[in-house]
Design a protein around this nucleic acid. Structure first.
Length: 518
RNA sequence: GGCUCCGUAGCUCAGUGGCAGAGCUGGCGCCUUUUAAGCGCUAGGUCGUAGGUUCGAAUCCUACCGGAGUCACCA
């Protein structure tokens, strides 16, 4: 239950006073002639015409973000999504009762207003609206966190005071956005990222589709699902952990190239790179293999980055990332050999590889050792690779040819039985994407499901439930194809130079704070 | 889930066993070209919650709540 603090009590009192003066606090109707940036641009254009240009009459709307009362003369800044402009208010130019609302601070910081007047410049040259009438559009009862901004002549904004408590910022994202311009910019770029992704794939001839979030059998990745229940059907359902199996069925149906951008749900730990729900892009294209996917993906990444940032060279933390194609390609075997000196093919079973991994860990001073029960594939990929190679992959790198036992949907390599045609894309030490030459042999796929169920216990993350309908679809004939999955949130992190996934999610998942609060 | 750190005014933070503090915000006053406006005065607190130790706790201890980092798990 809300208990107003002393600032809110002052504002509630002002709200009562406004009503006593016959001012509507939340009027239903608004007029405006321009957005702020457009009004400023129109004024500059008019000035360029010279002295005898007609005065520019405007009605603008926005939130008050700065107030400077000087008695019978006052200044404000109002802000809309496009920018800020100064209001120049003089008792001479306004109805006295109207000016009194400003002078008496009844219309104040954080309120939304509508201002009508003439575009002008003040003595110091600042473009302003010389206000004739100021209308309250929405009274703010709670003041926003105080962040003063100084806009320098070169356009840079210096902030004094900050609203930086991450918990409050995430729980009250609306206040974060209202106050922190840089945060607004992140989510603008997020929208641009997804728009560019869609445009690239559409232009490449892909068909955008939508497949079920509620699935009777989950699959396509190694993760624990969220479980829910349909009451009328008396059926347990899973929130999808990937779209893979539903999208590939569509290639059986005759589409050559499909993609989906949507939400996946994984009931796993929360971290700087993991949220229980996250946005994924998956695409599948017939008649290409994983090398074809690499060509497509690096062009797509470059296209998106150019659209979002206007350049292919972007900062990320202390690094400068260059997304110019083509990306470095190396096999997992070579990558691990380069960084550890171990050629895991000298130890082609879990029993022989395990002691080598342990001694490599100990030599590097790593305390947590892998469990002795790990499979060969996990020792290679989840231990040697993740520990010693992944953090060092700063520039875009495709790591190719993964162990078979952790990749049940990828085609075997032509050169041995232990590897599959799979790559993952690493940038800035982060895994961004995962791709296969997709397995389209229904008999091999069935054998791989069975192999997985032998290797991994039920209810473990690696468990891949056998999906009979998926096998049936594949038996009708699936064209050879290459598929790709991309963590969209991580791509946005990269493109906006954010270290935490929570900073690219408008409402990151946090534990509930108390009854009725989120 | 383990470990480490954090939680004090609306915001950002001091205070580590002895009267609850600062800046910004707010309130009152002055000000007809300011812009982090300025000047003077002033209000504002369940020190995350609950126990405990102590003559005395924001400070020490325990538990719990919430957050951050990290490990495990995973994308």
């Amino acid at each position: 239950m809300w208990q107003p603090n002393h600032l809110e009590r002052e504002r509630l009192e002002k709200a009562r006073e406004l009503q006593a003066r016959g001012v509507s606090l939340y009027p239903p109707r608004v007029t405006r002639t321009h957005r702020i940036a457009a009004a400023v641009a129109a004024f500059i254009a008019q000035e360029a015409q010279g002295e005898d240009a007609a005065p520019l009459e405007v009605t603008l709307t926005g939130r008050i973000r700065r107030v400077n009362l000087k008695g019978k003369l006052s200044f404000m800044h109002i802000e809309d999504e496009t920018g800020r402009v100064q209001l120049f208010l003089r008792i001479n130019d306004m109805d006295e009762a109207n000016y009194a609302l400003v002078a008496d601070k009844l219309i104040e910081m954080d309120d939304f207003v509508q201002a009508s007047g003439t575009m002008t410049r003040t003595k110091t040259g600042e473009i302003s609206v010389l206000v004739r009438e100021l209308v309250l559009l929405s009274k703010a009862i709670s003041p926003l966190p105080v962040v003063k901004q100084q806009v320098r002549e070169d356009g840079t904004v210096v902030e004094y005071g900050e609203f930086s408590d991450v918990e409050t910022r995430y729980r009250q994202r609306y206040a974060d956005l209202a106050v922190n311009h840089a945060v607004r910019e992140v989510f603008r770029k997020r929208a641009l990222t997804i728009k560019a992704m869609r445009q690239f794939l559409d232009d490449e001839g892909f068909l955008e589709v939508e497949t079920p979030l509620l699935q009777p059998i989950y699959g396509g990745a190694a993760a624990r699902p969220f479980i829910t229940h349909h009451n009328q059907l008396k059926q347990d359902l899973y929130l999808r952990i990937s779209f893979e199996l539903y999208l590939k069925r569509l290639l059986v149906g005759g589409y050559d190239a499909v993609y989906e951008i949507g939400r996946d749900f994984r009931n796993e730990g929360v971290s700087i790179k993991h949220n229980p729900e996250f946005t994924m892009l998956e695409f599948y294209k017939a008649y290409i293999d994983y090398k074809g996917v690499m060509d497509l993906v690096e062009r797509m990444m470059a296209f998106i980055c150019e659209r979002v940032n206007g350049t292919l060279t972007i900062p990320y933390g202390n690094h400068t990332i260059d997304l110019t194609p083509s990306f470095r390609r190396m096999t997992m075997r070579d990558a691990i050999h380069e960084h550890t000196g171990v050629d895991y093919m000298d130890y082609p079973t879990a029993e022989t590889l395990y002691p080598v991994v342990v001694s490599t860990y100990q030599a590097a001073g790593v305390k947590e050792l892998p469990k002795p029960s790990e499979t060969w594939g996990r020792l290679v990929s989840e231990h040697l690779f993740t520990t010693f190679v992944e953090p060092r992959l700063i520039q875009p790198t495709y790591i190719m040819d993964y162990p078979r036992d952790i990749s049940p949907f990828a085609k075997r390599t032509s050169y041995d039985e232990l590897h599959v045609e799979r790559f993952e894309l690493y940038i800035a030490g982060m895994e961004l994407g995962n791709a296969f030459t997709e397995l389209n042999d229904p008999l091999d796929q069935q054998a791989r499901f069975e192999e997985m169920s032998r290797l991994y216990a039920q209810n473990s993350d690696e468990e891949t439930p056998l999906d009979e309908d998926y096998l049936r679809a594949m038996r009708y004939g699936m064209p050879p194809n290459g598929g790709f999955g991309l963590g969209v949130d991580r791509l946005v992190m990269l493109l906006t130079n954010q270290r935490s996934i929570r900073d690219v999610l408008l409402y990151p998942h946090l534990r509930e704070r108390g009854a009725g609060e989120t």
